[in-house]
Structure formats: C-alpha cells, structure tokens
Amino acid sequence: MADEKQKKDEQKIGRTRQVEDQPVALPGIRRFQSFTNVEDRMLTKNINRAAMFGVAAAMGVAVLKPLFHGMPQTTYCYECRACYATQDKCPGRITEQAELTVASRVLDYRRFILKGGMNCIRCGNCQTFCAAHLDLPKIFGTMQKLVVAAIEEGYVPTGVLAQALAEGKIGRDYLLPVVKYMQKLKKETEKPIPEPELM
C-alpha cells in the first residue's frame, strides 16, 4: 500500500524518462535508462532546426539592418538606459533616448516617432551620458531622414502620424512632410485634419 503510494508520488513528481524497476546509482540516476523515449521526440527535429535558423536569422537581421542603413553604431548600444539621465536637459522633451536608438537599429518607425524622435534637435546632450559613447545625434539624424522618406512613401501608418501630431511629437523641421502627406490623404479620404500654422 505504502509502496504503491510512493510509486504514484514518484510518477507524479519526476519526469519519467527512465525504467523505474532499475536500482538507483546516484541521486536520481538509475542504472539503466530507456533507449529513446519516442513520445519525447515527437516529430520535432525539423521544427527545432527551423526554430534555430529563425533565431540566427533574427540576430542577423538585427545586425545587418542598421549596417545597411548606415547606423552601425546602434549594434553596440548596451541598452543600459544611462541616457535617461538627460531628463529635462533634453530640448526635445525626449525621455527615453535608448528606445530611439533601438528603434533606429531595426527601423521601427512607430517607436521612433511616438517616443519623440522627430523632436530631436541633435544637441548632443544625451551623448554625454552614454556609457558606450555612441554618436547619438548622428544616429537620430540619420533615422529622422529615413523616417521622412518613409512618410513620403506612405510606409508609416496614418494612425501613428495623427497620434504624434496630436501629442506634439513631430518637430517643426519635419512638420511639412508630415502635413503634406496628411493633406494628400485628406484629399483622398475627406477626413478633417487640422492645418498647423508654421513659422
């Protein structure tokens, strides 16, 4: 009775990948282990291979993409977020500079715009705090150009642009392309979009 209960416990607790009748050699090790547990294998060999390839490819994309777009420095951002210490000394009212760097790494336009990247005036304040001494102004400048190009191509969702405009996340240097794009859309969809006063 007690033995049965004990066996039940064991089965419930341990992973059963061993022949239970065999004596124990070391804590948890039995003298004979089953050759191959077919049910453990499933049909997963190729899935595992594909997953590993996916992992490696994702890494490759994360490194090669910034290289291709002329921002190789972003690959060695520590993401230690030391740049957050810029605080209210940032004239663009950006609070999370590290997010901008990471967004630049993979050309994540949504994150870059909504974290206030288009407000950056490239003053270099955050650079003084960077632990890896990245040339943040250069990175942000390159990214801003790419964002403008993407907006003109219509790659950036209008929802993002509308939100950014409403929150004042588009710097005055970049208002024109954004507004132009929105006006073009307005002609198409007849949605009322406020026309901001420039200068």
């Binding site: 595992n48 590993m52 390839f53 490194v63 690959t75």
Partner: peptide, 26 residues
C-alpha cells in the same frame, strides 16, 4: 562593429553547420 559582426558571423555559421547536415541538427 567588426568585433560584433565577427562574433555574429561565427555564431551564425556554427548554427548553420548543424542545420545543414542531416541528423546532427539536434
């Protein structure tokens, strides 16, 4: 950047090796 690329290329290539030859992917 070269150091990082070097690391990643080696990583990528050695991941690839197991995937290329049948049976060694595990």
């Amino acid at each position: 950047t070269l150091a990082i690329i070097f690391i990643l290329i080696v990583f990528f290539d050695y991941t690839l090796q197991g995937l290329l030859v049948r049976g060694t992917g595990q």
